[in-house]
Design a protein around this nucleic acid. Structure first.
Lengths: 128, 128
DNA sequence: TTGCGGTAGCGAAGCCTTTCGCTATACTCG
DNA sequence: CGAGTATAGCGAAAGGCTTCGCTACCGCAA
């Protein structure tokens, strides 16, 4: 088994992680039910993907007690942070602000959400 | 040649696009100089990648006049927007705000930049 | 116990990305 | 021109991700 985090989850792997974040711990059966809904792939494929992900350290399970129940090895929060960092690095040349400005200007954002961001900005300024 | 944008650029493709965004139009030679600096790959590899990308519609060139000069087929801005949209969709479940909040709270951001975001927020509110 | 439906796993095939060896073309300088 | 160097291109190999067929296992009912 490789080091956790040595590789980024691929597209399908991310889909599986998202399912786990929502329903873990979770038997293959349930993961497959959700996955095949969107992709129509075979049950064997889901099993294999989980075995690959287990090998990569992307998911875990209790080998002794419940080897059929899978969990995500990283939290949604951590994964998000990692993806975000990579995006900033690779596309925005390390500028978090460029990303934030583009995200804000391109998205539909409610007044409440705008206020929430203001509050966060105030807090950040206070700490400086 | 496939439709532009039918596929996301892969890792190496993105590296090449970044080089082009900085120096286009650009002969293979120069692209390779930059690419091999970071990766140490063969000249043939760079040529092939460009031919693949040309085929995918990720880069362009003037076939008649200057077939040796390559350009990116999408602007940095558009590519960024696409990546961002995908990240929001896949990892933040479509919530732009979740992403913005996480980006702000995880990055080093200067006071000027904070003010810049405030200004943008004000503008957005004005339009609603 | 035996047969059966539901579950898990392995190895190999298929596809896409990335790499490079070999060939072809163009360019320069004696 | 003609040899040698720089540049471009193609096809095939290598490697990784995704898919599935076939096999193995487990628990339950006849």
């Amino acid at each position: 088994m490789r080091e956790l985090g040595s590789t980024q989850p691929t597209a399908v792997e991310l889909e599986i992680l998202r399912i786990l974040w929502e329903m873990e711990p979770c038997p293959v059966r349930d993961i497959h039910a959700r996955l095949s809904e969107a992709k129509g792939t075979n049950y064997s494929t889901t099993v294999k993907m989980l075995s690959v992900m287990l090998n990569k350290g992307l998911v875990t399970r209790n080998e002794k007690a419940t080897p059929h129940l899978y969990r995500a090895a990283i939290t949604r929060h951590k994964a998000a942070k990692k993806f975000l960092g990579e995006l900033v690095e690779k596309v925005y040349d390390g500028s978090v602000m460029s990303l934030v400005l583009q995200a804000l200007s391109s998205g539909k954002v409610s007044k409440d959400e705008i206020d929430e961001v203001r509050k966060l900005l105030d807090e950040m300024e206070g700490k400086q």
